[in-house]
Amino acid sequence: MAVHTGVLSSGFISLAPDAGSGLAVRAALIVVLLAAASGAWWVASRRAARFRPHNDHVLPGRAPAQADTMTSSDLSRELGARGTFVQFSSATCATCPQVRRVLTELTAAQPGVVHVELQSEDHMDLVRRFSVFRTPTVLLLHPDGAIHSRTSGPLTPPRALAALAQLSLATPRSINV
């Protein structure tokens, strides 16, 4: 088989002109590629699995009041007295139904906690304002609409409950109101 030695291909395939060792090099490159992909997936999924405090995500140059608070008029419904989970979904989102199920069951069992699911395609203004880059992304709001924390990707009930407990600790005033 002819091995091309173009500039573009030189780094990728034609490290060795000999066909046998060329095959070994390619096989090694494939293994490295798949190992790197696995590592990146592992790091990304660990990072995405927990709720992160909101302030990490405010982009510079953005009006803080706008990007930090979601109002009931943004959502067209009342916020929860204890907290509100706002879930950004989309038509091509494979994980969204699982997250919806977790949050629906959680809000059914927790009075004062509201779950709102938004179709991102219909709310691109909110998607941009709150720096949503993938679905599902879940924002957890204080009773006054200030964003407490956020997460994206698959969600487990314990993670959601832990975030809710953190929120309650952060807003003791909401218990007495």
């Binding site: 959502l75 419904r77 038509a91 629906t104 809000t107 779950h115 699911e117 938004l118 219909d122 709310h123």
Partner: peptide, 16 residues
């Protein structure tokens, strides 16, 4: 800009 609407989470999907 379209008026924001929410999808009731009791109904799956929520797409048109």
């Amino acid at each position: 800009m379209s008026e924001p609407t929410t999808t009731p989470h009791t109904r799956p999907g929520g797409t048109p």
